[in-house]
Amino acid sequence: MYDVPHGRNEVAVTDVKITARNVQVYYGDTHAIKDVNVEIESNTVTAFIGPSGCGKSTFLRCINRMNDTIDICRVEGDIRIDGDDIYDKRVDPVQLRAKVGMVFQKPNPFPKSIYDNVAYGPKIHGMARNKAELDDIVERALRRGAIWDEVKDRLQSPGTGLSGGQQQRLCIARAVATEPEVLLMDEPCSALDPIATAQVEELIDELRQNYAVVIVTHSMQQAARVSQKTAFFHLGNLVEYDDTTKIFTNPEDSRTESYITGRIG
């Protein structure tokens, strides 16, 4: 993560992968995220839920510093992955994003071949020494994206020619190709039909074996189906964060209860 040679051994995987302390986000004069504290665990799917505009996507984009690309956006506070401050001056956001993959709301494959879509990340990070290694990485990523069987015969055809669900799984494959440790998903199923959604949800559950998955969703059913932990955001505040079963059956905060039962939102 740090922008120094990775000479030291990886520390033993602790349970907590990401720690956020007193995170504040401002868009110009708007205070979008207010004092969020959260600990996200490895090998877990964590869901961010809440009404639209509550800041869940904004907070998600803090974790791989995608907010840096927005000029008027300002992030304060402390976010650590494996104990390393990702907003430290020495951290290169580019390297951070290789470790923290992201899948977007709308499938956004590059207008290139399926192969090139997946190979792009490994290529720019120099993860393959030769073509055979690259082929290997691409195949592994596509298998992990649960799309290998559908595309193995047409790797050179354009990624934009796939169906919506296939495109989204391709984007997931692209994100895992750089071997990230964390996978951020910003409403990955909002543009998909129910069948494709089911496929992607199944995939998310599998991905949990290797990654800390953070998923933003507007669908409570989805959160209940795929996640082990759930965080409820409301008006920029993190209202409640607990095991998913607890949140959905026995929330502590009245606002959470209102949202779960459909009274606000």
């Binding site: 791989n64 580019v94 692209r174």
Partner: peptide, 25 residues
Amino acid sequence: PSIREAALGVGASKQQVVFHHVLPL
């Protein structure tokens, strides 16, 4: 912008985003 986000998301630098994706398109 989705193309730019996609490339940024896999860890391309801003110039890589521009020269690999935006400019050719």
